[in-house]
């Protein structure tokens, strides 16, 4: 089993965090949060992968006749996608509202809550 997918997942997570930390625009930051979340998809699918395995659909193959990849992590990844869509939609709605109230989406210009 190659370690490459695990390294890729870690890399994607860190890139997303870096993007959020240095972001100059909240829409971009929400995008970076989605990037961070993509690392969980990569990791989940990497965990369930089996060499030579096919998709876990048993309509045309006999159960047990050939290796299939783990269907559990695919179900998790699907649920994860739903969660991610909800979070992204809600945060973008908040950003739209911030743009309306403050007239900017630059996090450096938002400094009402401090101390």
């Amino acid at each position: 089993m190659s370690v490459l997918p695990y390294l890729v997942a870690g890399w994607i997570f860190l890139v997303g965090v870096y993007g959020m930390a240095t972001s100059r625009d909240l829409v971009h930051a929400v995008g970076c949060l989605s990037v961070t979340q993509s690392s969980t998809y990569v990791l989940l699918l990497a965990v369930g992968y089996r060499k030579g395995g096919s998709a876990p659909v048993f309509s045309d193959i006999e159960p047990g006749s050939r290796p299939v990849v783990d269907p559990v992590v695919q179900a998790l990844a699907l649920t994860d996608v739903v969660v991610g869509a909800t979070v992204t939609a809600l945060l973008l709605a908040l950003v739209v509202q911030i743009a309306k109230r403050h007239g900017t989406t630059d996090p450096d210009a938002l400094s009402e809550l401090k101390g």
Partner: peptide, 11 residues
């Protein structure tokens, strides 16, 4: 001052 209200800082 650390509690800057800045999303990037918090991340």
């Amino acid at each position: 001052r650390l509690h800057s209200g800045h999303v990037g800082d918090y991340v």
